[in-house]
């Protein structure tokens, strides 16, 4: 689908093509992430949402195409420039990825200790503020192994925002959260965006939660951006893609099955009767 260029895009993806193990994960993907907004990236499982986030942060390089973050073409950046860029990006991993050697406090303090020479008092206050924001100030001295999955994700979130980045990437932040924590995290995403103007990219499957915070939704399938719009526009379901995805129909343009050979052959039924 043709994409109308957003006037002020923080992230600008053009004709991105990526092959992984011989399979095209992206096949000419183009999309824009507007500055200062919350943009949700949705799509079926295995469609490459995590891969897209890895491209944006330069953890993986695409085979073709350009990807500009704040004007810099990420795939061509050298180590120094890439690290400088990453200091301005917060990333919430799908599986938290806390450092198991350190307690909760030190995990959140880690980016500060590495990149800023702050007086201990100031550092302590910043870390406690972020932990308070995710409701875990009391857990500051617990080790990651003593946390539940949902708590670990909130700690990881506190760590991702400790530097007040210009861009935050959330990879499935709602998984494993109870309704109260989910509302807290939603509120946090909204607050970070509205008060600090932090641009956010939100990868999530929960449309009910997404429509509460997202200004814009990109739907990715088959290596391309198949639909974009506000949550309301997409919920109306004007194309096959959106009808299937947001209507939850099992069959449609998105196949439920990972590409595979003939089912009957795999079960050994071919020719047996003939």
């Amino acid at each position: 689908m043709p994409i109308e260029a957003v006037a002020d895009a923080l992230v600008e993806v053009r004709d991105l093509t990526t092959l992984l193990s011989g399979k095209a994960v992206f096949d000419g993907l183009s999309l824009d992430i507007p500055r200062g907004k919350v943009t949700a990236v949705m799509g079926p499982s295995g469609t490459g949402k995590t891969t897209l986030l890895k491209h944006i942060t330069g953890q993986m390089r695409p085979d073709r195409g350009t990807l500009r973050v704040d004007g810099q073409n990420v795939p061509t950046l050298g180590r120094e420039a890439l690290y400088a860029l990453r200091e301005r990006i917060g990333y919430l991993f799908q599986n938290s990825a806390l450092l198991t050697d350190y307690d909760v406090f030190e995990n959140v303090a880690f980016p500060l200790r590495q990149h800023a020479r702050l007086p201990e008092v100031l550092l302590r206050n910043i870390v406690l503020t972020k932990l308070q924001a995710v409701g875990l100030r009391g857990a500051a001295r617990l080790m990651p192994s003593e946390l539940s999955g949902g708590m670990a994700r909130r700690v990881a979130l506190a760590r991702a925002i400790v530097f007040d980045p210009m861009l935050i990437l959330y990879d499935e932040p709602f998984v494993g959260l109870d309704p109260i924590a989910l509302n807290q995290v939603l509120k946090l995403i909204r607050t970070l965006n509205r008060t600090l103007g932090i641009t956010s990219i939100l990868v999530a499957h929960e449309f009910a939660a997404v429509r509460q915070v997202a200004d814009l939704v990109h739907l990715i399938a088959n290596g391309r951006c198949v639909a974009s719009g506000t949550p309301e526009q997409l919920a109306r379901g004007e194309s096959d893609w959106t009808r299937q995805f947001f209507g939850g129909e099992a069959d449609g343009p998105v196949p439920f099955q990972y590409p595979a050979g003939d089912y009957a052959t795999a079960l050994g039924f071919t020719g047996a009767a003939a």
Partner: peptide, 18 residues
Amino acid sequence: GLMRATDQLAAMEMMAVD
């Protein structure tokens, strides 16, 4: 090995720590 398996090394790279 476990730090790699649990994405801790990737997390460090994301925090601009080599």
